[in-house]
Amino acid sequence: MNSQAPVMNQQHAPDVGQPYTRNEQACHDLSIRVRDLNLWYGKSQALKGLNIDLFQKNVTALIGPSGCGKSTFLRCLNRMNDLIPSVHIEGLVEMDGQDVNAGKMDEVALRRRVGMVFQKPNPFPKSIYENIAYAPRMHDLVSRKADQDELVEKALRDAGLWNEVKDKLQEPGTSLSGGQQQRLCIARAIAVQPDVILMDEPTSALDPISTATIEDLMDKLKEQFTIVTVTHNMQQAARVADYTAFFHLGEIIEYNDTKVMFSTPAQKKTEDYISGRYG
């Protein structure tokens, strides 16, 4: 599969090759544009010539077998790969008209706009309240105490956690259950009011009920945010995602509307993966 091949093959979806036009469909505003993205860990190439458009206020799921590069790709979007010294990146990741890998781009500013939720919940060793209030305060999003309280409440409500924790805001974030901790991390991410939220297998460490709660939450959150999620679980992708990209050995094999992808995959590999032949 070469990079010239169309990455979307359904008429509703915009083709990578064609510049996107704003009027076509409201929910298809471009959020992040990726062109010819290559990534190496030392000498081994982990991402090979990726091209993909991610759309605003949609959930895009990245699926594929382990080690296919989907998490690595996700971490390119907020430059978390910078933390690994041996990583080398080439290609374009464009957001808001700017190349996020360019020298003048401040990765801190980028992460302020592209939030992230991790595989394992990682609340800070602070109170529930502080877990959420900390970042907005540092970003000068709130100045008065009352605003801060309001923001914490709103974030917790948006994350569907408010009713469970409103009476124990001063308790440590680590005292919550796993699913609650993960929603706390989501609340923490949305309190900063980012444009995009990246989720790296957000439910893989959770029980089925917490997983369902978080899937519902993603559905609600896409009204405000662009969500890109990595998942191992194809049913989850089918349930929550508007678009799905199938990764294999560092390449995007197929990228399409989720329904189309799961009903009539264009590629043989996709079909094999979806039908459980490997993965």
């Binding site: 808001d96 700017q98 781009m105 401040d106 801190v108 500013a109 302020r112 970003h139 000068d140």
Partner: peptide, 17 residues
Amino acid sequence: MSHSFDEISQQLKRRHR
């Protein structure tokens, strides 16, 4: 609702220092 990169970078200067 969202700030542009330039606005954020401006605010970040002090914090980076």
